[in-house]
Design a protein around this nucleic acid. Structure first.
Lengths: 222, 222
DNA sequence: CAGAATCGTAAAGATACATTAAAGGGTGGA
DNA sequence: TCCACCCTTTAATGTATCTTTACGATTCTG
C-alpha cells in the first residue's frame, strides 16, 4: 500500500510493528537510528518516528524531514509519560500517538495521513491555471507557460493550496508563512497577495483565484 | 533478484550474510579480499564492502569501484566504533550500515539502492544538449562534442537529472551531493553551479538549463 | 449618503540573496 | 617530488525580492 520509513531503536517493538504493518500490505523500511535516513526520503511515502532515540532524537529528525521534504507526512510516537512532548511534537508533526497503542489505531492514522497528503500528485484546475501540487508547478493553460513564483510567493501559495477552500485569516496566513506574530495593520501580507495576484490572475484587480473575505482574510477555492 | 559483489574477510559473518541474502533471492559473489574484484564488476549490480579489510581497505576499494563504474551502487559496512569512518565513508558511498545490523535492514537498503540506480538508458534533450542518463554522457549537439565534467560537477548534475523538473532546495542539493549538513550561507554549492553552467550553458550568465529559483534553490527541467 | 473601516496599489528604500572572479589549499598522477 | 587540476573559500558587486510607506479605492454601516 505505502512505503513507510520507520525509525525505532527498540528491537522488539520495531520488529513487531514492521511485521504488523507489513501484513497490512505496507512496505516498511525500519531503521534503528536516524543515520542514513536521508537515503530513503525519496523512497518513502510517510515517516514514523519514535521520540526517544539514541543520538539525534525524533524531534530533530522530524524537523529535518519537514525541512528537506515538507510534503512528507510525519507521525511521531512517544511514551505516555512525556506529556509536554505532545505540544512541541505537534508543532511540526502531522500526527502523533502515545505508547502503548493498538496497531489498528496506528494503521488507521496512517491511512488518514496518506489520504490527507495524497494531494501530493494531484493536479488541480483553478480557472485558467493548472496546479501540480507535488512540486507546486503552476501552468497557465491559456498562455501555455509556467508561472514562476519567488520564495515568499511560493510559500504563501502553498499555504493556500494546503488549505484549499478554507477561509484563512490574515493571522493564520502570516503566522503560517512568516512564522511570527502578525501585527495588526501590517500590510506586508497584502502586498504579497497583490504580487501573487499579479502573477496568477487574468485581471489582478478582479481576482478570481484568491478571493478576499473582507474583515477576515483570503481564500483559494476550487 | 540481484547480483551482489560482497567483500568481507571474516568468514563467519561472510557466510552468514551470503546465505541470508541468497535466501532472499539474490546471487551473492563473496570475496574475502579486494583482489580479483575487477573481474566481477561487469557481473554485479551492487557492491557491499566491509571497511576493515586486510590489504586494501574498503574505502580504497569503494573509491576504485566508483571511479571505474560510477553507476554501480556501493554500500559500506563498518564497525559501530569507528564513528568518524561514517563521514569519510559517505562521501563516495551510496549508503552505509554500522555493525551489528539486522539482515532485514541490509536487505531493505539493498532494495532501495537498486531501485535508485535502476536507470533506464534514456536520452534526454535539454536545449542544445543531449544527455544519456545511463552513463550521464553529455553531448553538445551543436558543437558536436562531448562535455567532460569533474567529480563534483558530475555528482551535482546527476542529482539534477535524478530529480528532473523538481525544484531542489540548496539543502537538498548540498546534502544530496556532499552528504553532509548544509551550512546556511555556504557558497560552495553556488560556485559549483557556476562551474556547471560554464560548461553546459551557451551563455552562463543567461542560464537556460539550470535555472535558479531565488530564495529556494535550483532546477533543471525539460 | 456620509463617514469609517478595510482593502488595494504604486513606488521607494532596505535587505537578502545570487553572481562572479580570484586566490589558496588539497589531492592524486606523472 | 612537483605539477596540474579540482575543490573550497572569500570578498566585491550586482540584482531580485521583501518591506515599508503613503495614498487611493472600495465596501460597509448607520
Amino acid at each position: 500500500m505505502a512505503r513507510i520509513l520507520y525509525i525505532e531503536d527498540e528491537s522488539d517493538i520495531g520488529s513487531w510493528l514492521k511485521n504488523d504493518l507489513g501484513e497490512r500490505g505496507h512496505e516498511v523500511i525500519w531503521l534503528q537510528s536516524g543515520e542514513g535516513m536521508e537515503g530513503y526520503f525519496s523512497e518513502a511515502d510517510i515517516a514514523i518516528l519514535d521520540v526517544m532515540l539514541p543520538g539525534l532524537d525524533g524531534f530533530s529528525l522530524g524537523k529535518r524531514i519537514k525541512k528537506v521534504k515538507n510534503d512528507m507526512p510525519v507521525l511521531m510516537l512517544s511514551a505516555r509519560t512525556a506529556v509536554e512532548d505532545k505540544l512541541e511534537g505537534l508543532s511540526f508533526a502531522d500526527d502523533y500517538l502515545t505508547k502503548p497503542f493498538q496497531p489498528d489505531e496506528l494503521a488507521a492514522r496512517i491511512e488518514v495521513l496518506l489520504r490527507r497528503f495524497q494531494k501530493n500528485d494531484q493536479v488541480l484546475d483553478l480557472h485558467h491555471l493548472q496546479v501540480h501540487t507535488k512540486d507546486l508547478r503552476i501552468i497557465d493553460r491559456e498562455a501555455d507557460n509556467e508561472i514562476q513564483l519567488t520564495g515568499k510567493q511560493y510559500q504563501l501559495f502553498q499555504f493556500f493550496i494546503r488549505h484549499l477552500n478554507q477561509i484563512l485569516t490574515k493571522e493564520q496566513l502570516y503566522e503560517g508563512v512568516w512564522g511570527e506574530q502578525y501585527m495588526e495593520g501590517d500590510k506586508t501580507l497584502m502586498v504579497h497577495i497583490r504580487y501573487l495576484r499579479e502573477k496568477l490572475e487574468k485581471n489582478p484587480s478582479r481576482p478570481e483565484i484568491i478571493e478576499t473575505i473582507r474583515g477576515i482574510g483570503y481564500r483559494v477555492k476550487i
